[in-house]
Amino acid sequence: MMNNAIEVRALRVRRGGNLVIPKLDVTIPSGSVTGLLGPSGCGKTTLIRCMAGIQITESGHVTVLGGPAGSAVNRARVAYVTQSSSVYPDLTVRQNLDYFAALCGGSDADVVRALEAVGLTDRGGALTGELSGGQRTRVSLAAALLADPDVYLLDEPTVGLDPVLRRDLWKLFNDLAADGRTLLVSSHVMDEAGRCDRVLLMRDGELIADETPDGLRRDAETDDLEQAFLVLAERTAA
């Protein structure tokens, strides 16, 4: 397996005439959970869209699994779970997953396992459009699990979830990484940084830290990861 699943070099992106990412270099190791954290509007979603190959860039290169982001050879190997729902609201949860299983060659047993993994076993018959936002995100995540990709790009997948479900999903993420999958998980909740192998902290389109959780605590001289972000942000501004 290659050492880095994703490599970003000299990336520069404008959206709506605004410079969102001025210049960014980062690598995402294979078989790991990397957290992408920072306040809303700092460029997390734009960066993930670049890795998914659906964002127009001004300059730079994004390589995923050895090929250009979004290339045909990688479409079955990369899953992108967006903040907004990417499943059909007029189908039930089970109908959505049966459909996606048919597309990727999954079985009925695969659908059952995916429902269990995201905590929706008892909601299979519910109309997807009537679920909460957090539940719809979990349906999208279950659909991604059915494809069994090598790379998961997850944009704020735990928003709106209760602490128990958040804990269970993070266990799932770490289990996937232990099986050799690569996950990039974005969040604006700093306590989730402690659940990651590595943490990328973003502010105003730039990385202000690329470290392990313990490295962040050490650099900022605090055990509180939210306080660590504030210390590093102030240090960068200075």
Rank of each mutant, 00 (worst) to 15 (best):
R12K: 10
C42K: 15
F100M: 09
G133N: 11
R138G: 02
R94T: 08
G160C: 13
G119C: 06
R167C: 13
Q83Y: 02
P22I: 01
G31Q: 09
E221S: 05
G67C: 05
G125E: 12
G180T: 07
T46V: 14
D25A: 02
A178F: 08
A10W: 01
S107R: 12
G16K: 10
A76L: 00
V33K: 06
L36C: 04
C42D: 10
E130T: 14
L141M: 15
A237C: 01
L176C: 09
D162V: 06
G134N: 13
R136D: 00
A178I: 06
N96C: 07
V185W: 15
L153A: 04
L127V: 13
T57A: 14
L146E: 06
R166K: 15
R113D: 11
P22T: 00
A238V: 07
S186G: 00
G16W: 05
G70W: 12
A109G: 01
T137I: 03
L91M: 14
V139H: 02
N174M: 10
D191I: 14
V151C: 00
K23C: 07
F229Q: 14
C42N: 11
G66H: 10
M1T: 04
I208P: 01
Y99G: 01
V33L: 13
G129A: 03
I54K: 02
S32L: 06
R195D: 04
R217I: 07
